[in-house]
Design a protein around this nucleic acid. Structure first.
Lengths: 236, 236
DNA sequence: CGTGCGGTTGATCCGAGTCAAGCCAAGTGG
DNA sequence: CCACTTGGCTTGACTCGGATCAACCGCACG
C-alpha cells in the first residue's frame, strides 16, 4: 500500500472536449445548454493504477468527475494502518468544493480517467447554477448515509458479518441475482474497507464458500449461491 | 438503552415564534428578511430525555434545527448492538431533506427543544433560496468529513486510542485548555460512540487517569493534564 | 526456470469482550 | 434517621475472536 506513492501525476491538461458531462451523476438535472458550458471548464486527467490525485492535508486544488476506472478514498494513521473510506465508481463526483483542505487521500486502484475542474472555477460555476448545487447536495447526503452505514459495520459487526455485508453490498450494486459478481478489489483492499486483516478476510471467505453460501470461481469474482443465508450472515 | 422507547412525542404544535433562526448554523448566510419568513414555517417541538424524534426505516416527515439539548443519531443491529453515528448540538440541523426515509434513529439524550419543519415545506422553501441549500451543502460536507474521520477510528484504532481520541475531540470542541471539560454523555454512550463496551471504556479512562494524562473529578467531567501525551495516545 | 505477488492455511498470542462482584451517590420509604 | 433500592460506574477473572507470525500454494512474467 505504501508502494503506491508516486512522485508525479500524469496530467494531460487538454480541455475535456470529448466529455459530455451527461455521464456524471451530479449533472442529471442540468439543461442541455448548460452541460456543454460546464464540460468545457473541465480538463482531461489520466491516472495510472496506484497514482494519487489528492493527498490529505494538502491544498485541494481540484474537484472532478470520474469517467472510467476505480478510485479509493483512504485515511491512515502514521504507523501505516489504513482505512478505505469509500470507493469511487465511474460517474461519481470527487473532491470537496467550498473547503480548502482535503481530509483524505484519493488514489487510483485501476487506470482511470477523470474530468477535473480547478476548485475555484467549479465553485463559481456552481454559484450560478443552483440545480448543480442541489444535485451535489443530494449526492452528499447519499455519501453521508453510506458512510454512516459503514460506521455501524465497523463499530459493531463481527468479522464474518463484515465480509458477508460487503459481498451483499457488491452483489446488489452490480448485476442480477445468480450471475457472477465482479470483484474489482484485492483481498487487502477488502480488508482495508472492513477494518480487518487480509488473513481474516481470506478465512471468512473460505468459510462462506465451504458453507455453500457463495462460490469463488477465481480471485476476481464471486457468485451468491444462497441469498438468504448471506443476508443472515451479514447481520441485521 | 432499550428502555428509551417512548410511545408518543410531546409535540407542541405552536408556530416557532420565539425563534429567530439566527441561532441555526445553516442560516448564517441568509438575509434578515428571509430569516423571519423561514422561522415562521417552523413549529416548536419539545423532546424529553429518551424520546425519539425519528425512527430508522420510517417516513421521515420532518427536518429541523436543534435549539437546546443534546441528541444522538444511532443505528443498531436487530440483536440490540448499537452504534452512535453522531451527536447533535444546539444549532445543528437534523434530518435529511430530499429523501423519504431516514436511515437512522434520532433520540434525545437530554431534554431538548427544536424548531421543526414539515419536510415538504422545508424543501420547497429551500428550492427558492439557493443560499440556504448552499449552507446545507457545506454542512453536509462537514458531517461527511466527521463521519469519515470516525471510520478511521472505528476501523483501525485500538481501544486506548479511541478513548483518547474522543477526549481530545471533546476537549477541543469545548473550552479553553486546562479548564475542566463537560462530559455530557454516560460511559455507555461513550462506548456506543467508540464501538467498545462500557467496561473497556471505564478501564481505559482509569489507565489515562493513573498515567496522569487526565483527571476525573467526577463522572460528568474531565480535565486534560497533559495535552501532548493525550495526543500521543490518540494516535496519528 | 526462478522470482515475485496475491492468496490461503496453520499455530500462537493478545486485546477486548463477557460474566460477575462490588462500589458509591442519589433517591425512597418506613 | 436509617435501611433498602437503584443506576451508573469500576474492577477482577476468564474467554474468545481476530491479529500476528510463518509457511506454503499457484500463477504470471521475465
Amino acid at each position: 500500500m505504501l508502494s503506491m506513492f508516486q512522485p508525479a501525476l500524469s496530467t494531460r491538461p487538454s480541455v475535456c472536449t470529448d466529455c459530455t458531462a451527461r455521464e456524471f451523476s451530479i449533472c442529471s438535472a442540468l439543461p442541455e445548454a448548460v452541460l456543454g458550458e460546464f464540460a468545457a471548464l473541465g480538463r482531461n486527467q489520466i491516472l495510472r493504477a496506484g497514482e494519487t490525485l489528492l493527498w490529505e492535508d494538502e491544498d485541494a486544488l481540484v474537484v472532478g468527475n470520474l469517467r472510467s476506472g476505480l478510485l479509493k478514498l483512504t485515511a491512515s494513521l502514521d504507523d501505516g494502518r489504513e482505512q478505505i473510506l469509500g470507493l469511487a465508481f465511474p460517474g461519481d463526483f470527487i473532491g470537496r468544493p467550498f473547503a480548502t483542505r482535503a481530509d483524505h487521500r484519493v488514489t487510483a486502484l485501476t487506470d482511470a480517467t477523470l474530468c477535473v475542474f480547478r476548485r475555484s472555477v467549479f465553485e463559481s460555476f456552481a454559484a450560478d447554477h443552483p440545480r448543480l448545487e442541489h444535485a451535489l447536495l443530494v449526492r452528499a447526503f447519499d455519501e453521508l448515509e453510506q458512510a454512516r452505514r459503514w460506521l455501524l459495520l465497523l463499530g459493531r459487526k463481527s468479522a464474518s458479518e463484515r465480509v458477508a455485508s460487503l459481498l451483499q453490498e457488491l452483489a446488489q450494486r452490480q448485476g442480477k441475482p445468480g450471475e457472477p459478481v465482479q470483484l474489482a478489489i484485492t483481498r487487502q483492499q477488502m480488508a482495508d474497507l472492513l477494518g480487518l486483516t487480509i488473513e481474516t478476510v481470506s478465512r471468512k471467505l473460505t468459510l462462506l464458500k465451504r458453507a455453500g453460501v457463495i462460490a469463488l470461481p477465481n480471485l476476481r469474482s464471486f457468485r451468491v449461491l444462497d441469498r438468504e443465508r448471506l443476508a443472515d450472515e451479514a447481520g441485521g
